[in-house]
Amino acid sequence: MDKLLRSNVSRLLKKLSEHAEIYAPTMEDGVCVLSKLVNNYDDWTLDYVRTTNSVKDIFFPQNEEIMRYKNANNDLNIEPPKPFKERVAFGVRPCDAAAMLLLDNVFLEGEFYDSYYKERREKGALITIACEKPDQYCFCTSFHSSPGATEGSDIVLYPADDYFLVVAVTDKGKKLIKANAEIFENATEKSGIVENYKSMKTPIGNNCSPGELNEKLKNEFDNPYWKKIARRCLGCGNCTFVCPTCHCFAVCDVARGCDGKRTRTWDSCKFQDFFLMAGDHNPRPTQVERTRQRFMHKLNYFKEKYDKYQCVGCGRCVEKCPVGVHIADVITHMKEEL
């Protein structure tokens, strides 16, 4: 086993930056954001439970240009986006890393894959830091995960006194350590640090573990509970945009004279115009249908399709929801009721 001294992190990031873009948690006006480090590799912080934005941003950005076109003299000229750079995300939380696996299901599985996402994923590495102190919004343990889980990460760092215990999870991770061997040190102690992290409980615990809820929800399309919680919902897309697993997007063209570009941007099932069809028809006209869609997607449809719940218990949506719409609440309520 290796260890990485906390004082060596900046050095590692600097070294990695030689051939990759580095993303790390940084404090920006009092808000902890996972952002790209440019030049200053000391800017990373450990003072966060979860970053405001999730690691999803790096592989499936809110806004990406998928092509540019020029249409002068009726001569159409299409320009694909520039190739992506290698990228390393440092300081990811285990829940976020696990969420990437769910996105992989969506974007990489099956006959058709998303080439933009694929390229980014292939060129990306995740260095996760296990959570020392989950807060009252955390409930990863409800989804077979834990503050020390390794799923989805390439390397997991387990914080100890003044260093991190380093566990390489994937080959990519192993290679990364090998290539930068001079920065890592051998760890001799074999205390139960890693096990401690893995067995740590989040405050909500696994009370809201959905179990076989998906089966039960199949018949609950018209459950009045959806109306009850939807009445509170303001219809902002906050929960879906901070969610590391939500992946809906829109594609739009911006044309200016002869030139134009096609971009892909996040979209949200919480928005009124998400379902709007030509001719002004909206199959999900009120917040009730939209709220139901969000939870049914996470707790039923996704599970049907990929045999996983589409939630990792990161707690962002429950922390950020201004009116207390709470997925753990939904799960507990449905489990009790059904």
Binding site: V33, C236, S268
Partner: peptide
């Protein structure tokens, strides 16, 4: 630039 356009 931090805004995620959730319109909350």
């Amino acid at each position: 630039d931090r805004c995620i356009r959730c319109f909350a």
